[in-house]
Design a protein around this nucleic acid. Structure first.
Length: 827
RNA sequence: GGGAUGGUGGUGGAACAGGCAGACACAGCAGACUUAAAAUCUGCAGCUCGAAAGGGCGUCCGGGUUCGACCCCCGGCCAUCCCACCA
């Protein structure tokens, strides 16, 4: 008996699939329904580990399964190749980011193939290719034309030690991830994308995505943060300025005892002009002390601080004088940058008022109750209004309407919707990204690079030191001529956030070599939308929100048709841990693909990754666990081996069930169809709990192994052996292909139709009827399928084991579930 | 503080629709084969009382609904993740 040589077999079929283009998707449609499976494209960091493998194995199984179920499948793959790690490698090791990235892509492509991934390699893309980022720039210009890309001054995270800007995710508890130095805020001129224009659609259309996890939709809803309220303004006493505030609780307006503004608020300048010079100096000092503090520090870590400006605002309804304070906890860029302070009905305001000795005026009382003494915390619920002029006595809900109308009639207020979502900052002072295609001319100002001059190429050989923007220091890149007037001009030296590339890559896969457009509309119409998207939950509000924004823009421009959502169904993978930590080089807990494939084989690795937990769960890697799947592969081989080359003439068509000689053969045939049914159901339901499917295959293989020993030539055994490569193909593709081929088939098993589940095979002649007495299981009886209640009761009464539970008692009630259960209530 | 998800043997997990709890596997124990080991095969295995037959308990805890609850409802505990001075 020859040992199964997985190394040789796996390598041979991987080369064959690549050579034959087995998984190439044709652009010409056929009679089948299209199916677009997509996994989030990886960053080429160097080496794939089994954590990556967990993600790609699921996508690959879904893709292969869908193809075998009769869909016209497209399953592309690419590289999210721009980003900071390449620059860090450049700084630390002096390598060129481009060469470093290319080498990583080459290595990881090898590893993706080593995993036996069934992706269409003719559609592979790398976002750092000029042929790709050219279209980034083109899309940026289309956004620019519509006013959706714009430049403005904005505060960013800045590390004074490393002399560089940091992304939000690189700020760990207010410090720089690399050097640990406290991060500051700096005002820099930055490019933004106006995602806020789409806030209402991005929110509303979540309701039309039943194929998305609820938690992801909730996360996006929270992030967009829509709130309805009223905006109104208060005049500043003695100055010609008004301060607008936004509130969701306008019913508490008579409880306002102070006005809190952000130190950056524009009205602060006017206020400084009307107060004493000492006050003005104090305000400046207060603003200065906060200017470099990060938002996290100001809002979450620091105590509530404030300074009375010396100025007053006039309450629009009561005409009382309201002291104006500058505070650390009011954010300049949410709402209007100013808040009405209602200590009695807002906990933040309550704490602030207590600390600074401000008045607390209760204007809402619990429904049906009166106030009983001073508050020891803000009263946040709705109720009825007290001490509120002619609104006194109204319910909160009615007062919100009435007060809003009064303010509108007075011309000082309006109903408003506010969003937490802010415009997307896409500028990065980094080298390894897409250059922003804008030049600055002394005469013409900000000028977009014309389409026919794209791409603006990223220059090679730029020194990267980790200090400041590398492109800004490259005169050959920065100095250019104005496309409009031909005069001297300066190129934008910022590059784009890498999330720009990943917001539309799924469209480029559909037309990867197009040099006239990012994609052709007919290709998009052929394949979009993505039927099943698979990736980590960490992108719930980043990539997945940006992509929806882009797709809506594309849809509005008519570049894509159908619905304006890119991803029909979304599935979040669980993480893979080892020793309780996420696999990473820094944790030194990485299990590499190459080593695992070499020692255990790729099929065993794939089976283990699918088998160990449901795919959405966090998984702990286990060196022992994979050995069980190695055994399974070997059992599959031994079970099928007697049915290889010699038995070709005895091939049994899989659609024809062999006659079943006895209960054991029936059980074997049943195991075949139970496993196949599980694979089909888990795919169709999009639950993808292939862990349960593979357990069914264990039972199938165990039954086959046992019966093969006794009667290797029975029709049932031959049928079950020949069905095995076909049914296990999506999960263990290499051994399946090898067995299929050795059984005499010419084509690839992966292009075959999956086994059709036959109800006759699933049916059983005999079932186990559970007999309960007063709800407790007291006996199990083997009975013919379809036994009626009367016969079942008779059998139960005759059952020796039940006598002690029934003797001398009256059966008062029977519950009978056919072929399952008989519950006798006695007393 | 708010929200989401979850809590089942020594371990990973199964039970898809309220109907046999613990499938399948890992680790373990015993046996067969072997000079021996590996590999392979067979058997045992929730806890507990009992020699056995058989009984009692058992899906985080406490209640409830039901003939019957891992599953549904109420209250609590714990864990993980997300959001969090958003006015």
């Amino acid at each position: 008996m020859a040992q199964y040589d997985f190394r040789q077999v796996e390598r041979r079929w991987q080369e064959r699939w690549q050579h034959d283009g087995t998984f190439t998707a044709a652009d010409a449609p056929d009679a089948r329904k299209k199916y677009y499976t997509l996994v989030m494209l990886p960053y080429p960091s160097g080496d794939l580990h089994v954590g990556h493998a967990k993600n790609y194995t699921l996508g690959d199984a879904v893709s292969r399964m869908s193809r075998m179920l009769g869909y016209d499948v497209i399953n592309p793959m690419g590289w999210d190749a721009f980003g900071l790690p390449a620059e860090n490698a450049a700084i630390q090791r002096g390598v060129d980011p481009a060469s470093w990235t290319r080498a990583n892509i080459d290595n990881m492509r090898r590893q993706v193939r080593l995993m036996g991934t069934s992706y269409d390699s003719t559609r592979e893309i790398a976002t750092c290719d000029p042929e790709y980022y050219r279209w980034n720039q083109w899309l940026f210009l289309r956004l620019y034309e519509r006013g959706l890309a714009y430049k403005r001054q904005a505060p960013v995270n800045w590390c004074p030690q490393d002399q560089t800007v940091l992304a939000n995710e690189q700020v760990i508890d207010g410090t720089c991830w690399r050097c640990g130095h406290a991060v500051e805020r700096r005002n820099l001129s930055q490019w933004f994308l106006k995602i806020t224009d789409f806030a209402d659609r991005l929110l509303a259309d979540l309701d039309g995505l039943p194929g998305w996890p609820e938690r992801t939709k909730t996360a996006q809803r929270n992030w967009i943060g829509r709130s309805e309220g009223v905006q109104f303004s208060l005049a500043v006493e003695g100055a010609d300025v008004h301060i607008a505030v936004f509130t969701t609780r306008v019913d508490t307006i008579f409880g306002v005892t102070f006005l809190a503004v952000a130190p950056e608020h524009p009205a602060v300048t006017a206020i400084k002009a009307i107060v004493s010079s000492e006050r003005a100096a104090q305000i400046d000092a207060f603003a200065q002390s906060l200017s470099s503090k990060s938002e996290l520090e100001r809002t979450s870590l620091m105590e509530k601080q404030g300074l009375f400006t010396g100025a007053f605002a006039i309450h629009p309804l009561s005409h009382e004088r309201i002291p104006i304070w500058v505070t650390n906890y009011v954010l300049a860029d949410y709402g209007t940058g100013a808040v009405m302070g209602v200590p009695a009905h807002d906990q933040r305001d309550f704490e602030f008022a207590h600390k600074h000795g401000l008045a607390v005026a209760q204007t809402i009382a619990p429904q049906g109750a009166e106030i009983d003494g001073p508050l020891d915390a803000a009263f946040l619920d709705d109720g009825h209004l007290i001490a509120s002029d002619d609104f006194t006595g109204m319910s909160s809900a009615r007062a919100r309407e009435g007060i809003a109308e009064r303010l509108m009639a007075m011309g000082v207020g309006s109903k408003t919707v506010n969003y937490k979502l802010r415009d997307w900052l896409v500028s990065r002072q980094r080298y390894w990204g897409t250059p922003i295609p804008i030049v600055y001319c002394e005469r013409d100002g900000e000028v977009p690079v014309p389409d026919d001059q794209l791409p603006v190429l990223l220059p090679p050989d730029v020194p990267i030191t980790g200090e400041g923007s590398p492109l800004a220091r490259d005169p050959a890149f920065v100095n250019t001529t104005c496309p409009k007037c031909g005069g001297p001009a300066r190129r934008e030296s910022d590059t784009m956030d890498t999330f720009f590339e990943s917001s539309w890559y799924y469209l480029r896969y559909l037309d990867p070599h197009n040099d006239r457009a990012p994609w052709a509309a007919d290709k998009a119409a052929r394949w979009m939308n993505v039927d099943q998207y698979i990736g980590g939950a960490e992108h719930a509000v980043l990539h997945l929100l940006y992509s929806r924004f882009f797709y809506k823009f594309f849809h509005d421009r008519g570049w894509v048709t159908g619905r304006d959502e890119p991803f029909e169904r979304l599935f979040h993978q669980g993480m893979l841990l080892r020793n309780g930590a996420k696999m990473s080089k820094s944790s030194a807990n990485v299990i590499g693909i190459d080593e695992t494939a070499e020692t255990n084989g790729v099929d065993a690795m794939r089976l283990f990754l699918l088998y160990a937990t449901p795919p959405e769960d966090t998984m702990e890697w286990s060196d022992e666990g994979i050995s069980g799947r190695v055994r399974m592969i070997n059992r599959i081989w031994r079970a099928c081996e007697p049915h290889l080359e010699n038995n070709l003439s005895q091939a049994i068509p899989l659609r024809e069930l062999p006659p079943m000689a006895d209960a054991r053969e029936q059980a074997l045939i049943r195991a075949v169809h139970v496993a196949a049914k599980s694979a089909i159901d888990e795919t169709a339901s999009r639950r993808f709990h292939y862990n349960a499917t593979i357990a069914k295959f264990d039972e199938y293989v165990n039954a086959l192994t046992a019966l093969t020993r006794e009667r290797p030539d029975s029709a049932a055994v031959r049928y079950a052996a020949r069905a095995l490569p076909l049914t296990i193909a999506p999960f263990a593709p290499h051994i399946a292909e090898e067995l299929w081929s050795r059984m005499g088939h010419a084509g690839s098993v992966h292009l075959e139709r999956y086994l059709e589940v036959d109800d006759r095979a699933l049916a059983q002649d005999e079932i186990t009827l559970v007999v309960q007495v007063n709800g407790k299981v007291r006996a199990r009886m083997a009975l013919p399928t379809g036994t009626g209640q009367i016969e079942a009761l008779a059998a139960a009464l005759a059952h020796a084991g039940l006598r002690q539970h029934l003797e001398g008692k009256e059966v008062r009630k029977q519950i009978f579930i056919p072929d399952k259960l008989l519950n006798l209530v006695v007393g």
